[in-house]
Write a protein that binds this DNA or RNA. Sequence first.
DNA 1: ACCTGAACACCGTTCAAGT
DNA 2: ACCTGAACACCGTTCAAGT
Lengths: 181, 181
Amino acid sequence: MRADAQRNRESILKAARTMVGKHGTEASLRGIARDAGVGLGTLYRHFPNRDELLQEILRSNFDELAEKARILVSSENPLEALENWMDEVAASTSEFQGLAASMIEKRMDPQSPLHASCSSLKQSGDALVRRAQQAKRLRADIDGADIISLVSAIAWLADLEGLKPTRRKRLLNLLMEGLKE
Amino acid sequence: MRADAQRNRESILKAARTMVGKHGTEASLRGIARDAGVGLGTLYRHFPNRDELLQEILRSNFDELAEKARILVSSENPLEALENWMDEVAASTSEFQGLAASMIEKRMDPQSPLHASCSSLKQSGDALVRRAQQAKRLRADIDGADIISLVSAIAWLADLEGLKPTRRKRLLNLLMEGLKE
DNA sequence: ACCTGAACACCGTTCAAGT
DNA sequence: ACCTGAACACCGTTCAAGT
């Protein structure tokens, strides 16, 4: 990649991060290009669609969550481990306005670059789910997909209602009661 | 109201109903005016903002739900009554794409005409909640607002993931496990 | 190779001009 | 009283023309 192209790419990502942080996942792409000091076509050259740009912004978040799952999978209390992880996912997802909705919407669409991130997130969840089920602490008819759906729903509420972390945890707690074996 | 104005109002509502049914609560107002065979300004004269139009479309739905609650409140099984009502709300809400989100978003905003509908919905829920709590079947730390939030979250999932009614009911069931006393 | 911005087809909202 | 549509300020997306 040419040096100027590299510079542009970075400006776009920087502008996008602050813009999405402020206005959510539906932030204006025009506005991002403007803030980045770059032509609109340049943004499209680097990121052919909105999801491609989002994916890049969210990559580190997803990586962190996968890492957390890897650590928690060897925890001594599998149910608590799952619940902790779910809270992390909810917190991380409600960080950007509209992200919960984007995730659920793109989950079925294999074309979207968010699809890959979501399914790897689902896999991280699957491992924690299996452990909790083996310990007979979690209902057997649950899988990672259920977990992502439910946690997204909580993140969505937290996002829209501006829930404080404590209330978010309470909702999660309520939900876990229903998932216990 | 002048006869032609009355006619226009009805054309707008008719067009809006089919448009919102097809494209969700964010359907184009321009498109609605076009389909109604009416100038864009006429739509705005009758409905100064989107919520005012939505409220009119949804009024009958809300009324039905209030009526259902009134009947269910004297049911012999209060917990089951609450669950049935919640399923009705979820079904009715996921009928229009984006409605769950609109309801939660506008719930805090006393300006919005949807606010009134939501708070009367909350009151319907409150009665059912109290009954279930008096029968010691429902946790004491729950109120109608929690119920609306949770049911909206389920409706939102049902909407976005295209859930079949059976899966929606399963989610609701899971949730109720957590709410039981 | 890469960048630019005009062009196109859309929005929501307002308001002067018309009947 | 009521209706109309042009005007304004925005979108996302594409692509010919420029370096």
